[in-house]
């Protein structure tokens, strides 16, 4: 396998990058760490002839309390004790991404904007051709759930759920200027696996902003996969909670690795504000989340198992975080 030739652009500012994208709209991709994009290019997945490298844009760098530049290397975040350690679950999530080698190149923004994955998509051109391609690349049919409307490729980033439960926001640059939106709104479950985010194609994630309240929460990230290295999540569960006394002040639960987008379950967790996190409430919440997720068979482990484990992981995470007085299990 080889990389087809492409033209590499190296802008120095966000505006320049946007401008280059506009000049080659439809035939350009942004290049962050390249650990996902370039292997996909080797497989000839949705090739573009123009790659716009973001590594030379100073504004996208920087790592500080409250702000993670999108080009922050995962390894740098992992190694930034004061920052990663200040945000519960983030250090765990970043340390679970792939391997040390990948984390040395991979970036925060790249992990957030990760291409969705599927057994029928992440294959060589030869492999896909032998099956007639798929909805997400060059084909007309989805092989996971055979039909022609929706792609079921799975969102497989680890950072998105972990940052989403901290109420992180992303700063986004588009042709129409800068906006700041809740990180979870980058993803839209009503969409499908073909698009990995809700932004216009030209948009650039500039930075992740974390509210001060996030530092007052307890949190964790738990990842299901066959191997403790290499593998994308078959399920990722992030939980963050702040207690006032023995009662819940805010509780957030998000999952990744199950569906076309990560999901946060505010409608199930908001009613728990002011309540004690009893064993029974934890079980009810875990059960409700389990019932609402819909994984499909396009990763290594079967979907019924990943669903059952969603409940187990949510329950275990909450039990570990709950004050000893409220949850006994």
């Amino acid at each position: 396998m080889h990389l087809d030739p492409f033209e590499l652009h190296q802008p120095a500012t966000v505006d320049e990058a946007l401008c280059i994208y506009r000049d080659h709209a439809g035939d350009a991709d942004y290049l962050a760490g390249g650990t996902d994009l370039l292997p996909n290019y080797k497989m000839h997945l949705n090739l573009r002839r123009h790659l716009i490298a973001l590594g030379g844009i100073p504004e996208l760098g920087g790592i500080a309390l409250g702000r993670l530049g999108s080009m922050t290397r995962l390894a740098d975040l992992e190694g930034s004790g004061p920052v990663a350690g200040a945000y519960p679950g983030v250090a765990e999530a970043v340390a679970e991404v792939a391997t040390p080698l990948v984390r040395a190149s991979g970036t925060v923004g790249g992990n957030l904007m990760l291409e969705t994955r599927c057994f029928f998509f992440n294959q060589s051109r030869f492999w896909r051709a032998s099956l007639g391609y798929c909805l997400k690349a060059e084909g007309a049919v989805c092989h996971v759930v055979p039909q022609k409307e929706k792609c079921y490729a799975t969102f497989s980033g680890d950072l998105a759920p972990a940052l989403a439960v901290l109420d992180a926001e992303v700063e986004v640059a588009t042709d129409r200027g800068r906006t700041r939106i809740p990180l979870i709104d980058l993803y839209d479950l009503r969409g499908d696996g073909i698009r990995r985010h809700t932004l216009p194609p030209s948009a650039i994630v500039v930075a992740v902003h974390l509210p001060p309240i996030a530092r007052q929460r307890l949190g964790t990230y738990r990842k299901l996969r066959i191997r403790p290295a290499f593998d994308f999540p078959e399920l990722g569960v992030a939980v963050a909670v702040r207690f006032e006394g023995s009662s819940v002040a805010e509780l957030r639960v998000a999952v990744g690795g199950l569906e076309t987008a990560p999901r946060r379950f505010d409608e199930l967790t908001d009613p728990l504000a002011g309540q004690q996190l009893t064993e029974e409430r934890i079980r009810e919440l875990a059960g409700a989340i389990t019932r609402s997720v819909r994984p499909v068979y396009n990763t290594f482990l079967p979907p019924d198992y990943r669903r059952r484990m969603t409940g187990v992981f949510v329950r275990r995470a909450l039990v570990d975080l709950a004050p000893a007085s409220s949850a006994a299990a």
């Binding site: 057994f119 060589s124 191997r227 403790p228 290295a229 290499f230 593998d231």
Partner: peptide, 23 residues
Amino acid sequence: MNYRASRLMNPALLDYKILAPDQ
């Protein structure tokens, strides 16, 4: 070697799960 009928689904080292060193 994960087959669906005659098709090998995981002809790559990411999806062919050799134990990681820390296992």
